Computed example of a mutant assay.
Amino acid sequence: MDAIELLLTRQSCPRLAEPGPDKEQLNMILDAGARVPDHGGLAPWEFVIAQGDGLARLGQVFVDAAISNQASEVAQKRALSMPLRAPMVIVVVAKPVEHDKIPQLEQVIAASCATMAMQQAAFASGLGAIWRTGSVAFDPKVNAGLGLTEHDQIVGFLYIGTPVVNAPIKASKQGSDFARYF
């Protein structure tokens, strides 16, 4: 698949199964994330990989946050199973630092670009992926459970695996519909 086709046909794959990325694919996916625009070369991100037992541990982090937030038992059970929707989840974390020329927002945007680049790399290697967030991405208990600081921000949970079904191609959007000239 060439780059333009990849960009114009990108879509999320919500149903994923084994196999997930092999070591070579994972390294390529991570390398793609590390190649995004990064003003000042700060690399303001961290990629936390959960697979195997790590998926259950991530689910427990979600459950602990749900309990802390007094969620229902149904919500707690759902939280436990969330990471099990794919053989691998990469938690992409923005780790902005104080800098006199590079705003923290720009650093968070760079981490977000890394997520998109990794999703594209997964697709390019024949895998499927979906970028999820939800309330767990903004929960201080989840941050703590992942060993993050209060200044870190989860920008996404990138679920990666083999698509279970071929999702229908979404209707194309014309970029010009969102553009204006100044």
Rank of each mutant, 00 (worst) to 15 (best):
G126Y: 06
G33A: 14
A144S: 15
A137D: 01
E73D: 15
S72Q: 13
L30P: 13
D100K: 10
L80T: 00
A121F: 09
R57V: 05
D53M: 02
N27Q: 05
D38E: 14
Q60S: 02
G54W: 02
I67K: 09
Q104S: 05
A43W: 07
A144G: 13
V142A: 14
P96A: 00
Q60N: 07
S112G: 15
S68H: 09
A114E: 13
A75K: 15
P87E: 00
A34D: 15
D31N: 14
P87M: 01
A129C: 07
S68D: 11
P140E: 15
M28P: 07
S81F: 09
S68F: 04
G54V: 04
A43C: 14
A71G: 07
A124P: 12
A50V: 11
Q120M: 07
E73Y: 13
Q104I: 09
V108T: 09
A79R: 05
L105K: 11
L26Q: 08
E46D: 06
G128K: 09
D100V: 09
K77C: 03
E106M: 01
M88V: 01
R57W: 13
L58G: 00
D64Q: 10
H99C: 04
L26G: 08
K77D: 04
A34F: 10
A110W: 07
L55Y: 03
T133W: 12
T133V: 10
H39F: 10
G126S: 04
A137K: 10
Q107W: 00
V36A: 14
F62P: 00
V61W: 03
V108Y: 08
A117S: 13
A144T: 12
V63Q: 03
A66H: 06
I67S: 06
R78V: 05
Q119A: 12
M28F: 10
Q51E: 10
G134W: 06
V61G: 01
D100E: 08
A137T: 05
Q70M: 12
V91C: 04
G126R: 03
